[in-house]
């Protein structure tokens, strides 16, 4: 009897595993389509979205080359800026918010409670609400360069961070 249930369970698990495998493949397909299309000539991306980039459709690596070098704003630079901003802001956010969270946890003053509440509150404020004034403020304080944007990020995200800690 017991053996039966165990083998039944194993069977169930195998079936589930197969179903999940299929779903996973479907899940990856959109990414696959993007990769395929990145090798296609521009014209065929919308007309033959799911075809393999063969024959006259194929653009080889020319899209990649163009993407990296196009115009006066090379993609490489953008990537470097993104890396810079990500590293800096992750560092700043981790350091500063953990310090603040530690402090709030230790010191139980009214002030700290207020700050904590504000942090949670900032999570429900839609970005559109602060978008325009924020860009203005950031510009005024010269915080709109890749080196200083992390400070703005630090200010916009503490809600999520401190409530996690």
């Amino acid at each position: 009897m017991k053996k039966n249930t165990i083998s039944a369970m194993n069977r169930h698990k195998t079936i589930l595993s197969v179903i999940l495998a299929v779903v996973s493949i479907v899940y990856v397909l959109p990414v696959l389509a993007v990769v395929l299309n990145s090798f296609k000539q521009n014209t065929y991306v919308k007309t033959d979205t799911f075809a393999l980039p063969m024959g006259e459709m194929s653009a080889g690596f020319s899209n990649f080359v163009k993407g990296m070098t196009f115009g006066n704003y090379p993609f490489v630079n953008s990537v470097l800026y993104s890396v810079l901003i990500t590293v800096l802001s992750t560092f700043l956010i981790l350091l500063c918010t953990s310090m603040a969270a530690w402090y709030i946890e230790r010191v139980n003053s009214l002030f700290c409670k207020a700050v904590y509440f504000l942090c949670v509150f900032s999570m429900v404020v839609p970005f559109q609400m602060v978008m325009f004034p924020l860009s203005k403020t950031a510009d005024k304080l010269h915080l709109n360069t890749p080196w200083t944007i992390p400070v703005v990020y630090l200010g916009s995200v503490p809600g999520l961070q401190s409530s996690c800690l």
Binding site: L88, L141, H142, N144, W147, T148, V151
Partner: peptide
């Protein structure tokens, strides 16, 4: 550390 952070904030100015 504190000074370093302030400096980062003021770099843009």
């Amino acid at each position: 550390l504190c000074v370093a952070m302030m400096a980062t904030m003021l770099v843009g100015c």
